[in-house]
């Protein structure tokens, strides 16, 4: 049985095919903006290349936030069709837990920063694979760590540009599907995480 992974929420995106939970092929793109029209096309090409029929798909894994809002909606809109037409279950993965697969042997609390727009993002604290806390923070405050309550801590991010600035360490997921996920079998339950409330949105405007 094959699985599909849609990660469309980070600055660099990936569409992957798995066989028995091991990645067999993947398409990675370095820019969400440039890849937003090609996710389904890439997925189709991967399946054609691997001679996989749609009926051979067991699960669709989709990273559903935090991350860029457009990307979250894109991944969920695509995955909904698998539930709606073929009743293939969707496995929702939290972005922090997806990125954590890229960090090995860390006993301390891991701090990961995920941008959700040009100026802000989410800071998450993970300990022993459990997501303990998340905060919506301004990017500039993460860079000036004093403002968010700690100094000189090691913060991981999947954003290369941010990582190049001080106090950030670049991480890439290792294509290991996480053990923590939420499986949904109806479209109604496929909802995005980490969206601002309507009041917050309007205040910002």
């Amino acid at each position: 049985m094959f699985d599909i992974l849609l990660q469309t929420v980070l600055a660099s995106t990936e569409i992957s095919l798995y066989e028995n939970l091991k990645v067999i092929e993947s398409i990675k793109k370095s820019s969400l903006q440039k890849s937003e029209n090609t996710f389904v096309f890439d997925l189709y090409c991967l399946m054609q290349k691997q001679k996989i029929d749609i009926k051979d798909i067991g699960h669709v894994w989709v990273v559903n936030g935090p991350g860029y809002f457009t990307g979250i909606r894109t991944g969920l809109a695509i995955s909904k069709t698998f539930v709606d037409v073929l009743q293939i279950p969707i496995r929702l993965i939290n972005t922090f837990q997806w990125l954590e697969t890229g960090i090995s042997d860390c006993k301390d609390t891991i701090k990961i920063f995920i941008p959700s727009s040009a100026r802000e993002g989410y800071l998450g604290f993970i300990k022993n694979s459990v997501l303990e806390e998340t905060f919506l923070v301004l990017t500039k405050d993460v860079l000036k760590q004093k403002k968010i309550g700690f100094e000189n801590a090691l913060i991981y991010t999947n954003d290369k540009e941010l990582a190049e600035q001080k106090n950030m360490t670049y991480i890439e997921p290792k294509f290991t599907l996480p053990s923590v996920f939420e499986e949904v079998e109806t479209t109604r339950k496929v909802i995005p995480e980490y969206f601002r409330t309507e009041d917050q949105l309007f205040k910002k405007q």
């Binding site: 996710f39 096309f41 997925l43 189709y44 909606r73 809109a77 695509i78 995955s79 069709t81």
Partner: peptide, 8 residues
């Protein structure tokens, strides 16, 4: 994206 998904 929903339409593309349906197409596949």
């Amino acid at each position: 994206e929903y339409a593309r998904g349906l197409s596949v």
